[in-house]
């Protein structure tokens, strides 16, 4: 006798909680073969603003945590993701199509990407920081510090690996994030937030919105309390968003190539996009 499955409601993730859109709206998400998968929340301007408030509130705690602590939390995300591997493979395959083997490789790479960035939390300052030999009796050093609240427009095609590849480097250095998931393929992202919620990631460090890029992204790009924006998945809308971001001189990372191979070695570029270098002078003398 067959059993009727219990389906999941795919919601937003704001401040560590899972609300529906305050607008009460949703939109149907279909799979690679056109089949109905679920209704996802259609986030509004108000949801975006709530998410920024949550991210700002989480910033002092997360940026103030030791790098070692952040590294352990990110590694915990990898552990939790590995435990849900089968679920992610199902969802990525449903969203992106293709053979199961390819979806599985993408999920494995996404798990390993968290491990890669977990290892960077306490090393970036050792690689990107410096003691500067200034000409004079001064001790002078420079360190990278997180920029603040970073808005992220996730890649549209790579629903999970692309998302993790842009999100993890933002939070690894101590920023907090407001992420707009792939518009057509948002379900793996929502499941990822369930992992984040059970991985010791403090509420508000990562906030996830699902919905329309053209509706939500402009509000994030022009928001006065957002310090930087990663337009990875913004595509052609990126130009207008970059222009809007100039209002408070947000740091902007321009749209990624839509065909980018996210399995490639990520390097340190994304880590360094969302840090500020702080230099400290101190006299030396008896």
């Amino acid at each position: 006798m067959s059993r009727l499955e219990v389906r999941k409601t795919y919601k937003l993730y704001i401040g560590g909680k899972f609300p529906r859109s305050e607008s009460g709206r949703s939109y149907p998400v279909t799979g690679a073969r056109g089949q109905f998968l679920a209704n996802a929340a259609l986030a509004s301007r108000k949801d975006a603003r709530d998410a920024v408030v949550a991210a700002r509130a989480a910033f002092p705690g997360w940026s103030g945590a030791t790098a070692y602590n952040r590294g352990q939390v990110l590694y915990r995300v990898a552990e939790m993701m590995e435990g849900r591997r089968a679920q992610f493979v199902d969802e990525v395959q449903a969203a992106e199509g293709g053979p199961r083997r390819v979806a599985a490789a993408e999920v494995d790479a996404a798990v390993d990407r968290w491990v890669w960035y977990a290892g960077w939390t306490d090393k970036l300052a050792q690689v990107a920081g410096a003691a500067n030999p200034v000409a004079g009796p001064f001790f002078n050093f420079s360190l990278p510090e997180p920029t603040g609240v970073v808005a992220v427009v996730a890649p549209q095609r790579s629903s999970l690996l692309g998302l993790v590849s842009v999100l993890a480097p933002v939070v690894a250095t101590g920023n907090t994030a407001v992420v707009l998931a792939s518009q057509a393929r948002p379900l793996p992202a929502v499941t990822l937030t369930e992992v984040l919620a059970t991985s010791d990631v403090p509420g508000g460090v990562v906030n996830l919105l699902t919905g329309a890029v053209e509706e939500v992204a402009p509000w994030l790009a022009s928001h006065g309390d957002v310090n930087a924006i990663d337009l990875a998945g913004a595509g052609l809308a990126g130009v207008d968003l970059e222009r809007a971001a100039a209002v408070n001189l947000k740091r902007v990372r321009r749209p990624a190539d839509p065909d980018l191979d996210w399995t490639a070695d990520p390097g340190t570029g994304r880590l360094l996009s969302f840090v500020e270098t702080k230099t400290v002078w101190h006299p030396v003398g008896i």
Partner: peptide, 12 residues
């Protein structure tokens, strides 16, 4: 934990 993170970053 610290050196685990270096294993794949030796080039950096």
């Amino acid at each position: 934990f610290y050196y685990a993170g270096w294993a794949d970053k030796l080039g950096h």
